[in-house]
Design a protein around this nucleic acid. Structure first.
Lengths: 215, 215, 215, 215
DNA sequence: AATGAATGAGAGTTCATTCAT
DNA sequence: GATGAATGAACTCTCATTCAT
């Protein structure tokens, strides 16, 4: 309950909280969300007790890390649209700045545990909504520019890149990077306006990614 | 070592073994490789003891499931090349028959645990090699046909589709299927011969996916 | 129930039974009475099922091995008294033929499990009684000969040698044997009416107890 | 590694640790080193978790108990030499104060498991060395005094008494004590330069070994 | 009757979470 | 408030014993 963002924390408590989130992001990214809580506490330089005072349980921590991360991603997305000359370029830049995204997506979509935690969390949903809204704009703008093919929509782009952003297990760091770059380029090529083959179904809108409608 | 094909099993033992692998495939696919052994045993309709008699530990089970799975995939790949009129169509069909593939890729590339188990297992390496060899042929043939762009190689195709084959966490079954179909179509579009933009780096060959060279 | 010695067994069953007891003696002696039943079965060249058909449970097996062993010991004791010229020599010879004895004593007196099994077993008690009766005769005869001190009785001798017959954990085979010989000589000297006989080998220094030198 | 004396423990942790060692000593002495960890925890009044926090596994616990015990034994040995007027008396007193010794010897020499744990443990080796050094002095002094026979050395004494110190399984507490006393007296007589001292108690007859009378 | 497969209770160990210091 | 100790439930694995072949 103390983890409530409303209540402003004392300076040292604040610092602890941040260290924990930073450590958890680091470790979650590297090892997934199943690491012992004690390890996270150690990496953050605090005792487990402190960790649990800040975050009542593992789920709360995952939620906090994801929230923190979505914020970064959102900021990045906004910076991209604000600073790039064309929507297409904004889209590309945004997608290339994947470091932060990666974790979000991991947490949001790979781990079963994490996914269920996040789904029930209002703040997360909000961020998710904000992010999709942002993406909506860019996607439609890129289509208006004639850079992005017309038979797709935001949902397609989101899902396609969600795939791309998974942690790939590769023989080496180099191979991983090269792989990631080329895959992204191939995908972008698939998205580009010079049509290609008709796609099955109908464009996936950002609404299609909503979790709630039924169930 | 357990699944030693030398010693033929008694009929009932054989049946149990198959049920266990089937149950494990099912559950691994759905929940990842960390499920309690007891749950797998229950799903297979046997006691834990039986499971452990057949597979000395979790790693052995993972290995066996992966081996079994790779075999299916390989068969499928061969059937595709044998039966489809063009290499491109063989490639597409092979990639569409993803149900089996999905688990292989999951086991081989998503889970840290699983990956390390599989890496040390010769049989797995063999299957992996055989599969890449098969893919090699199709990819090059598709390029010769003029259907597949020339600036890529087997490694690119493998990695791109490895991404695609991840379990996607989606709001609904329908959404998941639609998503998968469209993503695949977009990717195929990226792969098609009418080029598009130049790709970064150099084509990834199947050698690039080898785990062993150094380290 | 089949293990009842009354019922004569078929030849092959008999053979199985003997192999099992032989294997169990071997293994119990080497590793104590906690070895897996399966290991015993394997060593005996039969399936566990067969072992269990012969001996309803582990305790029954321990009892059978001990019974078998006591019989050997008793035979040995009788041979000693029958064949040696003096009672003292019979005593010494008997005590030196410790190989069989060792296991009896182990089973009877070292292991808690074994002890309780054996205590409740009438046949064992009988053998035990017979053995003590035999020892009684020798001890008293040796005292009459003037070779054995008068202020002791059969119980003293039995207990003293029970101690001696424990498995000693020693740095090496050689050290173990030398140790056993010298300890026995010292004990015999303690028992003698006129002590002071020369000891075998050379004095064991504290270096001789070092575990590390070689191996 | 666990019982690292560097890091001072918190008061409660210290108390728990001591209780665990005390309980383990008690139980190991009575039942050998194979008792369930849970039983030890219960006897110590803590949860298993606590036991495992203190001692990463059974071996670590055995090591700690043995270390603790050797310390006591060593102290006793030193007190004996310091306080007794002659080396022979020091030797006798030391050997009579067997309660502590017994467990050491049990752990060090009877159990296969325990023996291998202890062998690899430097601290144990040190204690063992120190103890033998102490014994060396007493033995040689007793020989110089003319009390101890000259054709033996420290190793003989150590091994002989190692035998004596085994847990004897006896019909009753009384019988056990009488047995121990008389065996020790006989052994001491074997060691004496001028043997032939009167023994304590009365001769143990074969009846004294009967298990049944009471209980 | 022999075999070895199946069972399940129980032991060792880990780790999320609570609580005393 | 912070710390790290204690707890116990949950999980992996083993093995005595039973049972189908």
């Amino acid at each position: 309950m103390t983890a409530d963002p409303e209540t402003p924390l004392r300076a040292d408590a604040r610092r602890n909280r941040d260290q924990i989130i930073a450590a958890a992001r680091e470790i979650f990214t590297r090892q997934g969300p199943d690491v012992p809580m004690e390890e996270i506490a150690r990496a953050a330089g605090v005792g487990v007790g402190t960790l649990y005072r800040r975050f009542p349980d593992r789920d709360a921590l995952i939620g906090a890390v994801a929230r923190d991360n979505y914020t970064r991603v959102l900021n990045e997305a906004r910076a991209s649209t604000a600073e790039e000359p064309t929507a297409w370029e904004a889209l590309v830049r945004f997608l290339r700045q994947t470091q932060e995204l990666k974790l979000s997506v991991q947490l949001a979509m790979v781990s079963q545990v994490a996914a269920s935690v996040l789904t029930g969390d209002g703040t997360i949903d909000e961020f998710r909504g904000a992010l999709l809204a942002e993406l909506d704009v860019v996607v439609h703008a890129a289509q208006a520019e004639g850079a992005l093919r017309k038979d797709i929509d935001t949902g397609d782009v989101a899902m396609l890149f969600a795939l791309l952003l998974r942690q790939v297990i590769s023989p080496s760091e180099d191979a991983a990077r090269l792989t990631a770059d080329r895959c992204m380029a191939l995908m972008l090529d698939g998205l580009r306006a010079q049509p290609g083959t008709p796609l099955p179904g109908r464009p996936l809108t950002s609404r299609d990614l909503d979790w709630h409608p039924e169930h």
